Simulated assay, not measured.
Amino acid sequence: MNTDQGSQFTSFAWTDRLRRSCVRVSMDGKGRFLDNIFVERLWRSLKCECVYLHAWETGSEARTGVGKWIEFYNRKRPHSALGGKPPAVVYWLRKDETQPGQQEQRVA
């Protein structure tokens, strides 16, 4: 298991449990923020654009709300790093470029 060096991953309870389960522990060096920067940005966007704006009463409401936001994020939300296009559009455009002759992929 590869993790960062956050306190939850360096605690004896966590590392001992992994070792007893015969799981090798690997930790990135301190300051390796670039390893997970893309996921950190996604979580920040999810929290600021979705989670903090809703007061869901049940776990199923939260699951549905987060699922809708992820669908929006991937298919409709413009991304400046992608020239204002959503990730799904860029993905299918690149896929079509690398595999000519395939059927047209629909995004919507």
Rank of each mutant, 00 (worst) to 15 (best):
P86L: 01
Y91H: 13
R94S: 07
E49V: 09
E57P: 02
L82G: 05
A81D: 11
M27H: 05
V66H: 00
S80Q: 13
D35Q: 12
S80E: 12
L46N: 08
E49Q: 03
G29A: 03
L82S: 02
A81P: 07
E57G: 14
P87V: 04
R94W: 13
F72R: 02
G67Q: 00
N36Y: 09
R77Q: 08
G29K: 00
L42R: 08
N74T: 02
R77K: 07
M27G: 01
I70E: 04
D28K: 05
S80V: 15
R41P: 04
K95S: 11
L82R: 00
T64K: 15
R94E: 15
G31W: 01
V66K: 02
I70F: 06
I70C: 05
C50F: 00
G83F: 02
T58L: 05
A62S: 12
V51E: 09
G65E: 12
W56V: 02
Y91Q: 07
Y52N: 14
L34G: 08
L93C: 10
R75P: 03
R63V: 07
W69Q: 07
I37D: 11
W92P: 06
A62I: 07
E40M: 08
K68R: 15
F33P: 14
V25R: 04
E49Y: 03
K85P: 08
T58E: 08
K30R: 14
F33Y: 12
G84N: 05
L93A: 14
R41A: 05
E71T: 14
I37L: 10
L42N: 07
T58Y: 04
L46Y: 08
P78V: 00
K68Q: 15
C50H: 04
Y73M: 03
E49H: 06
G31T: 05
K68N: 15
A88H: 01
L46Q: 07
H79Y: 04
G84I: 00
V89D: 08
G67H: 02
R63F: 10
R75V: 11
R75I: 09
G59H: 14
A88T: 06
K85G: 07
R94I: 03
L53K: 12
G65H: 05
S26L: 03
K47P: 09
W43T: 07
E71K: 13
I37N: 12
C48I: 13
E61W: 00
T64I: 15
V66L: 01
G31F: 02
V66T: 04
L46E: 09
E71I: 05
M27V: 04
A62G: 08
K95L: 15
